[in-house]
Nucleic acid binder design. Structure first.
Lengths: 190, 190
DNA sequence: ACATCAGCGAGACTACGAGTCTCCTAATTC
DNA sequence: GAATTAGGAGACTCGTAGTCTCGCTGATGT
């Protein structure tokens, strides 16, 4: 046990919860670090003792609050699995998590360190899951083997991410089917 | 002719040029309105007399400086046209315009008015060009007619926009071919 | 018991940038 | 030449991220 008063784990949790709820429910860019501190019943310094910046807290809140939101089922129909996964991602984008992701992306454009952390902690783990499923689909002979895997994933999920960030069209679950309809004939190995 | 001293059109141009050069060449988020005013040899008030906000100036600079950067050739091979267009977009994303777009997207996440203006003045005009080419491809019998056009464009270009914003992988012109390779077999009408 | 150490709440304080205001001068119309 | 609007310079306000200080608290070590 280290010297001194131990960290208050409950306060830590209150901070992350408050960040998630506030940023997820208010107009984007509208939540200051003071707001989070007040909502968590915590002093600002307590936040800065454990996180290096405002965005770092929010990223933590996002990672914690969105950990299990997009599970990847594994049946013997790879297309169906991807379509189902697209639907979970769409639901997640339309939830508070979607707002938080948008804030993180905004920050990432002007803060390379945040961008790196976002990719490492949020983007890449999900990406790896999708990649594994894609490779399994190739093994199963359901997906062409001659394509660049990163590109295939960019194509599949890029449509969603772009709508999230540009907002040129609404994003609903029918979109999952439409994307699969457009892409799958070109991906399938027959 | 209206009363009073006429607007200094040269100053207007200097402001837009300075904004384009500065934002396009410096680390993102590193250009203040004072920097632009100084570089353009202009008083800050002169900027705010004509633009409502910092981001509005930069969006104007982007629109003006990127107007003709992604022309859409029309041959009788629709796939080749799209592939060529993807290459021009990639080149544009890797130019100063790309940095400016990233700043605008960052701002758009927290400023709905900017988001709307970005879509209207930058996104939609290009989108309309792509849409027209896509519909022409359908008429020519080179592209399936049963797909949702917006989704097809999301899929084609979303891969690029996502790489621009996430930065998980570099974006070079070989990517244009890879995207076409992955998508076209599913789009072509045969 | 008591000193020591680190965390906590409260709130003052600093740094910085967006946007406003003021003052004076310049260019144009009536 | 009076009125009007723009431009340059720079002070000013305001809000927020992040720092600092202070008195207090909950642990450990002797």
């Amino acid at each position: 046990m280290p010297r001194g008063r131990p960290r208050d784990e409950e306060a830590r949790q209150r901070i992350l919860d408050a960040a998630f709820v506030l940023v997820g429910s208010r107009p984007p860019g509208d939540v200051s670090i003071n707001d989070i501190a007040a909502a968590a019943n915590v002093a600002k310094q307590t936040i800065y003792r454990w996180w290096p910046s405002r965005t770092a807290v929010i990223l933590d809140a996002l990672v914690q609050g969105t950990m299990q939101a997009t599970p990847f089922a594994e049946t013997d129909d790879v297309r169906a699995d991807f379509e189902a996964h697209l639907r979970t991602v769409i639901r997640m984008f339309n939830s508070p998590s979607g707002r938080i992701i948008r804030e993180m992306l905004a920050g990432a454009q002007t803060d390379p360190a945040l961008a790196e952390e976002f990719r490492e902690r949020f983007w890449q783990p999900r990406r790896d899951l999708s990649l594994a499923r894609l490779e399994r689909g190739i093994e199963l002979g359901q997906i062409r083997a001659d394509l660049d895997a990163e590109t295939v994933l960019d194509v599949i999920y890029g449509a969603l991410w772009t709508r999230l960030m540009i907002g040129h069209q609404p994003l609903s679950s029918v979109h999952a089917t439409r994307i699969a309809d457009a892409i799958w004939p070109g991906l399938s190995d027959d």
